[in-house]
Amino acid sequence: MTSRSYVAGAALSAIGFALLVVAHYLGLFVAPREAMMGDVGRILYVHVPTAWGALLFYLGAFVAAIGSLWSGRRGWDAATTAMVEVGTVMTFLLLVQGSLWARPTWGTYWTWDPRLTTSAVLAAAFGVVLLLRRLIDQPARRATATAVATIVAFVDVPIVYFSVKWWNSLHQPVSSRQTIDSPMMQPLLIAAVAVLLLGIGLSVLRWRVELARLLAEEAAPDLPDAPAPLDLSGASGAPRG
């Protein structure tokens, strides 16, 4: 089954993956060690693009949720779910990568610092959005619930971003061109583009699957509430009672 969206999704994913390999080759073998952290500092190239990606895909899901509530079209509903899922995968990766980076640098896997706490809330909030979606059978109601929950959960996205600005934290503040030396900037930016393309590609592929599922659901006849009990009487000829 090939279509334009399938080709586009697969191609974007493949290009994103290839760029990711290039970025990490540069990050691991070409870029210098970080002056304070040494080789451990190379997690920068994994962690920061994942963080940007997670926040961006949740932003995409937020926009799609508005589109879904406004238009009521199932394409927006499928897009909301696809991007919430991609964002949530990235958020879980983010928490794991961050812990692995924190142990050798900060000296602990976890601390309830504002950035870490709000990020954990982010994973939980969008986890609930996905759970909610699984629990509702009626398509129109499910689409509305998914979109409303996505808009509410999205509140945490700007909070995560500004947490290091608003409150005292152990996590470092937002980095910029001024705070990252140029030989380190190159792999970081390539990895960021790679994660973005990979995420878009996966979102498109997931969107297709969800859309097909929604269409199939509408086309299929309603299932009975409970399976009819099996009637075994006389089937095997065994005496009853």
Partner: peptide, 21 residues
């Protein structure tokens, strides 16, 4: 005791022994 890292990522200064990191 937890150590805070700044948002600065710098290449090591020339002539600094990497092992001293």
């Amino acid at each position: 005791v937890m150590v805070k890292h700044s948002n600065e990522y710098r290449a090591p200064t020339e002539g600094v022994d990497p092992e001293s990191l």
